[in-house]
């Protein structure tokens, strides 16, 4: 699934570890999400959207797959 997490995180000058801490997961989870290797649960998607102050659909695009 395509997502905008990396761009929004970097916009805020946050590290992956920093974002991970904010939403309560491991840095590896954030890394996997950004690389399109892991699709977060609804709960985590809501947490990310709330943190970035946007809607889930602004953050995630179900039509894309950017897995490396």
């Amino acid at each position: 699934m395509n997502n905008d997490v990396r761009a929004r995180r970097e916009e805020r000058g946050l590290s992956q570890a920093g974002l991970a801490e904010e939403v309560g997961v491991t840095r590896q989870t954030i890394n996997s999400i950004e690389r399109g290797r892991y699709d977060p649960s609804l709960e985590l998607a809501f947490a990310l959207a709330a943190f970035f102050e946007c809607r889930i659909e602004d953050l995630f695009d179900p039509d894309g797959d950017e897995a490396e």
């Binding site: 801490e21 939403v23 309560g24 491991t26 709960e43 985590l44 809501f46 947490a47």
Partner: peptide, 30 residues
């Protein structure tokens, strides 16, 4: 952002991610 989550009555990842000691101003959860 963290306060907004709290006032919505919803804490992120309570079941699977966040434990005590983390979050803004807390110790490094990671």
């Amino acid at each position: 952002s963290a306060r907004r989550l709290g006032t919505d009555g919803w804490t992120p990842m309570t079941g699977i991610g966040v434990g005590s000691g983390g979050g803004p101003g807390g110790t490094s959860t990671v």
